[in-house]
Nucleic acid binder design. Structure first.
Length: 217
DNA sequence: AAGAAGATCAAT
DNA sequence: TTGATCTTCTTG
């Protein structure tokens, strides 16, 4: 599919964007377990402004039984979980250089809470804007990592605390890819604690992931 | 006040 | 493999 801009298609109350096949994911999608949300977000379309991409890699972090989750060692993260609703953007600055983007997950029935880290997207709209923001040409260099995709989509501290439940500004949409893609689970990337959990989810064989399946040390 | 660690990236 | 770069949290 050739993409020049954010071609709005379809009609009616719910707009559909490039690659989207239905209404945006609502709050209830994020009111479940983080691991299930992370797995099922692979294949969805994320849109923000004129940019959009298919989610091809995510990671789940859980408040309980997971020492890699920020809530385990950051009081500010625990406060964030208390003060925000499911679907809120948790955007933080890492290594003094990059913003990383998460979605807050809260299950009101079980009380389980956690995050889904967006690790890689396959760009489908707004590529020229992404190229300008990233200073790179190759589509594979635009969103193939959590720092890269945040930069490509212009996500930063100003988005921290905003809701990712669909708005005029941004949202997640189901896409035909959701059912077409094969999703595989692997160990998470770049962490030192709780590395045993297979909570990284990838679109099998997709060239836009940050680290290929099986390549985590 | 100072130090260490950290969910990364790009160049060498 | 290494350097860049800085916020959050802990310790003294």
């Amino acid at each position: 599919m050739k993409t020049g801009g954010p071609n709005r298609v379809g009609s009616g109350a719910q707009p559909c964007w490039v690659g989207a096949s239905g209404p945006p994911l609502g709050r209830d999608f994020f009111e479940r377990e983080a691991v299930a949300c992370a797995r099922e977000l692979v294949g969805a379309v994320f849109r923000r402004g004129d940019c959009a991409g298919i989610v091809v890699e995510t990671e789940a972090y859980s408040e309980h039984g997971d020492e890699a989750c920020h809530t385990f060692f950051r009081p500010s993260a625990r406060r964030f979980v208390e003060e925000h609703d499911a679907g809120a953007a948790y955007v933080y600055f890492n290594y003094g250089m990059y913003w990383l983007t998460n979605v807050l997950i809260k299950n009101p029935r079980t009380g389980e809470r956690g995050f889904v880290l967006l690790r890689a997207l396959e760009p489908v709209a707004g590529l020229d804007l992404m190229r300008r923001r990233r200073g790179r040409e190759n589509p594979r260099d635009l969103c193939s990592g959590p720092g890269k995709l945040s930069m490509a989509f212009g996500l930063d501290g100003a988005d921290h605390g905003k809701s990712f439940v669909a708005s005029a500004e941004h949202g997640f949409f189901p896409s035909p890819e959701t059912s077409r893609l094969e999703v595989v689970a692997d160990r998470r990337v770049g962490i030192s604690r709780s590395r045993n959990h297979a909570w990284r989810f990838l679109a099998a064989g997709n060239p836009h992931v940050s680290v290929k399946f099986g390549r985590v040390k």
